[in-house]
Amino acid sequence: MILYILKRLGSIAVTFFVVSVAVFLMMHAIPGGPFDGNDMPLSEAVRAKLMARLGLDQPLYVQYLNYMWGVLQLDFGVPYQSPGETVLQLLANAWPPSLLLGGLGVLIGAPLGILLGMAAALRRNTWIDYIASGIATLGLTIPVFVISMLLILVFAVWLNWLPASGWGKPERWILPIIAYAAIPLATYARYTRSAMLDTLNRPFVTALRAKGLSERRIIFQHVLRNSAIPMVTVFLPMFIGTATGSIFVEAMFRVPGLGSFFVSSIENRDYPLEMALVLIVTLMFCIAYLLSDIAYALLNPRIRVEGRQ
């Protein structure tokens, strides 16, 4: 197990390196730099001065090595969009709102989705199944900004129960959390339904029933556990994807979160921030998959992390 984890950590390092080179090259291959795109073109002299100030006049490999040397010391540089603070300080300010709302969205949406999926599987082809599947399909197909807009219209404008948008007081969190919860809820409902139906049809369930186990024990102790693999697979990546903020949800609810920086760092050619975001998310996904693999082994003793059965 330990050897396996070490091997996986090695491969994470390789992935990290490959991603860093690829992203660095792609980032600089996009036309225009941080100072282009204004209404009037910059004169060469002015442009040269601005580029030199950020060290962008140096050869690309020097820029890459300088940046990565910093990264190894946890120095991700200074964002061009926000001089006066480091990339890490910017993340420390922008991430908590996304983590809070997105994280709660997943933590609330996923269990509700599991319950919905279970209900659908156990009452297959009844009205419960149809409603649950309908909710799941709507949650996945209606774009999140439409859901957000509807939530604002209904709860803030028409009913006047909750604030339309903003950040600060906890009542402002409720609508964005519901918007964030939609996709995990829908995804989990569908996964759970199909995984449970699959398991319910397996012979061991019939055997358990024949042994006289109560239906509750069969469902919760055996069927659910055996259906958990796909749920574990999607959980962490979904958590990371949601808890790093959605540009749509954050724009609609005016959350000062991380979501918009994924786009603005590219639009503004904010190289240090763009690199930092990609590298951090890469690392998080690598670790998430490693943890998922370990969780498989814990859930199902027949799966061995080293590939032997």
């Binding site: 996009i30 036309p31 225009g32 730099g33 282009d36 795109g37 204004n38 073109p41 639009e267 050619r269």
Partner: peptide, 9 residues
Amino acid sequence: MPTKDWMDG
């Protein structure tokens, strides 16, 4: 196209 790409063009 995005502003910077447009201006570059």
